[in-house]
Amino acid sequence: MSPRTRLWVLACGVAGVAALLAVTVWRLPPFGGARHPYGERAVEAALASRVANAVASVNFDQRAFDTLGEQAILFGSVLGTVVVLRQTRDERRVEPEPAGVAGPVRRYALIALPVVLLTGVYVVAHGQLSPGGGFQGGVVAATGLHLLYVAVDYRALKRVRSVHLFTLADAAGEAGYLLLGTGGLLAGTAYLTDVLPLGTFGTLASGGTVPLLNAAIGVEVAAAVVVLLARFLDQAIEIVTSGEEGDRAPGTDGAPGTGGARPAGGTGRADGADGPHRTGRGGAG
């Protein structure tokens, strides 16, 4: 289709879908209504199994099978990304060069690193009590680890980040979730049934298997995100196709900033003077 035809086709389609959505949406119950039968049952069930955070109870107990599928998606797509971004025959690796970092940036990032990692672990651990959980904490911890890239350089990150080890952790988290589920089968009831003692409401050990499943997800997510980012970083920094510019690249790199990994969208200008491997620490400050 020529761009012009495409626009016309698109206009027809969008108009139709917009009409459909408009007609449909008008029949929805008004926003903010009080009728939530499933929600109310879920809250009751959460309290009955002594999980303070009802969302965690839904995720890791009542609808734990959804989460099983979700973590399989995560696991599968990380594996898929590893496959798609593998180093092929016509590609080689270049060693990233060591590079200096401005003092304040380094100090800031090195202080922030343990704080972020601890925050991640805390968020995972308190998943069944307060907002947060395996997924959120895992992502925070994993992106936090990449502050090392900001603070020192890619080689420092590579030293602590053994991709094999994290792949293993990824698989272990996945398998852990699946095996925890079989506890129910061993006890003679349904898969993923909460068979552990429920504990005291509002404590870290409350909720039976909920904290364990939560921890398994935390491990898997953190490891998965590290492996995922490792593949992208590999591609952006180390792997070059034959014919692609290598480590002798001229000073300025066109892409402004590959971004700080901090949850504020902080991305700044590239400090291109450092050469291609150093671009993208800009967002750290």
């Binding site: 099983l68 696991f75 272990a172 398998a175 699946l178």
Partner: peptide, 21 residues
């Protein structure tokens, strides 16, 4: 039979995790 139903999902997933590990 009912209890075995989830295994149709769990078994291959576990196999995949072991293969990756």
């Amino acid at each position: 039979a009912a209890q075995a139903l989830p295994l149709l999902v769990v078994l291959p997933l576990t196999g995949a995790a072991l293969l990756v590990a």
